[in-house]
C-alpha cells in the first residue's frame, strides 16, 4: 500500500467538511475492511483518509425511536448481531448478520460502511431495503434522508455526494411481518454470495397481502423485484404461485455473471431461492 495521510475528526460534520474538496483521493474510512482491501489491490490510492473512528458516540448506538429501529453508522456488524434491541425489533437482521463474512470482519466493519461501499454482494442492503429502511446523511451544511432503495446508483456507486456521510439508518420495525434472507455461496460458507434474496411479507392467514422482495449479488445493485411481488400479492404461496413469482423475477431482473457464477446460473438460482426464501419467511415466527 502507498503512504497516505490519516486524519481523525471528532464529529461527523467536521469529517464531511474534510471531504468537501471533492478530491477523489480524499476518502472516508469507517471500519476500514473494504477500504484496506481496495488499497491493497491498488483500486483505491488515497492521499488522505478521514477516519470516522473518533466521531460522536451516538453514531455507535442502537436504539428504538418513533416505531423504528435506529442504527448509528458506526455500529459494528457484530454489535448488530448481538443486540437484544435488533433481535426484538427486526430479527431477520440478526439472522442475516450471523452468516455475513466472518467473526473478525464483523467485529470491525460498520453498518454505515457496509451500506456506503455499494458492493452488490453485501448482505444487509437487500434485507434493509426489503424492510423499507432509509438512511440519514450529514454534509457540511445539513443533511437529508434517502430511502435505501434509491441509494444505489451502480456497481460500487451510490447517490451520496463526496462530502456526504451516512449518520444513521432507520428501519421500520418488523412487527408481524415475516421475513427471510437466503444466499447462495458457491465456494466456501463465508464466501461472497453468488445470489442473495431478501423477502418481507405481510400476511393474512396463509395468504400474502403484500410482499417486498429484493435480489442482490446477481445484479449490479440490490434490486426490488416488483413483478415477483405482484405475483404473490393477495395469493396463497403454493408451488404454482411460487413458480410464477420465480419466473417473473428471473425474467425481469438484470442478472449479470461474475466469478461466483454465470448470469444463466444465477437466473436459475433466483428462481429456486426466491421460492425457498418465501417458504422460509412463511415458516418463521418473525
Amino acid at each position: 500500500m502507498i503512504p497516505f495521510e490519516l486524519v481523525e475528526p471528532r464529529t461527523l460534520r467536521e469529517a464531511a467538511s474534510l471531504l468537501a474538496s471533492g478530491d477523489p483521493a480524499v476518502r472516508p474510512l469507517a471500519g476500514g475492511t473494504a477500504v484496506m482491501l481496495m488499497m491493497k489491490m491498488g483500486v483505491l490510492r488515497p492521499a488522505r483518509l478521514v477516519s470516522l473512528r473518533a466521531v460522536e458516540r451516538r453514531c455507535s448506538e442502537i436504539r428504538e425511536a418513533d416505531g423504528e429501529l435506529r442504527l448509528g453508522a458506526m455500529v459494528t456488524l457484530s454489535a448488530l448481531e448481538r443486540s437484544p434491541i435488533v433481535k426484538n425489533l427486526a430479527p431477520v437482521i440478526v439472522r442475516a448478520s450471523r452468516t455475513l463474512s466472518n467473526v473478525r470482519v464483523r467485529n470491525v466493519a460498520t453498518v454505515g460502511g457496509h451500506l456506503a461501499h455499494a458492493d452488490p454482494h453485501m448482505d444487509l442492503p437487500p434485507v434493509l431495503i426489503a424492510l423499507g429502511a432509509s438512511v440519514t446523511t450529514v454534509d457540511p451544511e445539513g443533511g437529508r434522508t434517502i430511502p435505501l432503495e434509491t441509494l444505489y446508483a451502480g456497481y460500487l456507486e451510490t447517490a451520496l455526494r463526496s462530502n456526504e456521510l451516512i449518520a444513521e439508518v432507520s428501519v421500520p420495525v418488523q412487527g408481524v411481518r415475516r421475513a427471510a434472507y437466503l444466499k447462495c455461496t458457491t465456494r466456501s460458507a463465508d464466501d461472497w454470495p453468488a445470489l442473495g434474496v431478501a423477502v418481507v411479507l405481510d400476511t393474512e392467514g396463509d395468504a400474502v397481502r403484500e410482499a417486498r422482495i429484493v435480489v442482490s449479488a446477481a445484479t449490479d445493485t440490490p434490486t426490488r423485484l416488483s413483478a415477483a411481488e405482484e405475483a404473490l400479492r393477495g395469493a396463497r404461496a403454493d408451488e404454482k404461485i411460487l413458480r410464477r413469482a420465480g419466473e417473473a423475477a428471473a425474467a425481469a431482473a438484470n442478472v449479470v455473471g461474475d466469478e461466483h457464477g454465470s448470469a444463466a446460473y444465477k437466473r436459475e438460482l433466483l428462481r429456486v431461492y426466491l421460492a425457498r426464501a418465501v417458504k422460509q419467511a412463511l415458516a418463521s415466527k418473525g
Partner: peptide
C-alpha cells in the same frame, strides 16, 4: 491471504478478534 479470509493474522484489539492484515496500525 491478506484479505481477512484466512485468519492467520488474527490479533485481539480491546478484546475483539480482528484481521491484522485489514486493520490500520495507526488505529
Amino acid at each position: 491471504c491478506g484479505q481477512g479470509l484466512c485468519g492467520c493474522c488474527t490479533a485481539l484489539v480491546d478484546g475483539r478478534a480482528v484481521s491484522g492484515c485489514l486493520y490500520l496500525a495507526a488505529l
